[in-house]
Simulated assay, not measured.
Amino acid sequence: MALALVALVGGCASIRDHRGYLVDQTLLDSIQPGVDNRLSVERSLGRPTFVSQFGNEDYYYVSQIVKTPPFGRPRTSEETILRVRFDPAGNVVAVDKRGMEQVARISPEGDKTDTLGRHRSLLEDLFGNIGAVGAGGMGGTAAPSGPGPNGS
């Protein structure tokens, strides 16, 4: 009986999963602005999770700890984003560290999304365009003129 109770309680524990970069504070502290460059950062920290596409090519290292409760959805419990900023010559300017304080939690409400426009019934949706298709070109207007196939 006690063994069954231990197995039942053990099955109800959350699963803790690490995703992304493993942050090593010693290696992170070894990166020095003005001394290191892109190559030395890659040798110390490894390849970045991603590189910025606009502006200076900053390196980003993303680390997450995700907990999944039994019969529940995974939720990020901890997140660390390291950004290594470089000057145009490729030398390290600064190392920034951000966490969960930058994460925005949003929870949409309701099963419907409000839209602008008319409220139409099913029959209006099915048969509302009968007679409207082709009506704009039926007025006897002349064909477009010009060098291209569409008159441009």
Rank of each mutant, 00 (worst) to 15 (best):
Q32V: 15
T76R: 07
D111A: 11
Q102N: 07
F71M: 12
K97E: 15
S107L: 06
Y61Q: 09
R105F: 09
Q102K: 11
V93D: 07
V92I: 05
G55K: 07
I106F: 03
D114I: 03
T80Y: 04
Q53H: 12
F54V: 14
L116I: 04
R75T: 09
P108A: 02
P33F: 04
S77L: 07
V95Y: 06
R83T: 14
G72E: 08
V35R: 15
Y59K: 07
L28F: 02
N56A: 15
R75E: 15
R38V: 09
D58H: 15
Q102A: 12
P33S: 03
P48A: 06
F50G: 01
M100H: 05
L45E: 05
L116P: 00
V51C: 09
G34T: 05
T49I: 07
G46T: 02
L39Q: 15
D36W: 03
G72W: 10
R43N: 13
G34D: 09
L116A: 08
Q64K: 14
G99V: 08
D29L: 08
I65T: 14
D96C: 04
D96K: 11
R73K: 10
F50L: 11
I81T: 15
L116W: 09
E57S: 15
V35D: 04
G90R: 09
A94V: 05
L45G: 07
I106C: 00
D96S: 06
F54Q: 10
D36V: 02
N56I: 09
N56D: 15
P70K: 05
I65D: 05
I65F: 01
E78N: 12
D96H: 11
V92F: 10
R75H: 09
E101V: 04
R118L: 11
A89D: 13
P48V: 10
L45D: 04
E109I: 03
L45F: 06
Y60E: 01
L45P: 10
D111G: 09
A94N: 14
E101T: 13
R83I: 07
R47V: 04
I106W: 02
Q102E: 15
A94C: 01
E101F: 08
N56M: 12
F71I: 05
V62L: 15
E57F: 10
Q53L: 13
Y59H: 13
E78D: 13
P48S: 09
E42H: 02
Q53N: 13
V51R: 13
G55P: 11
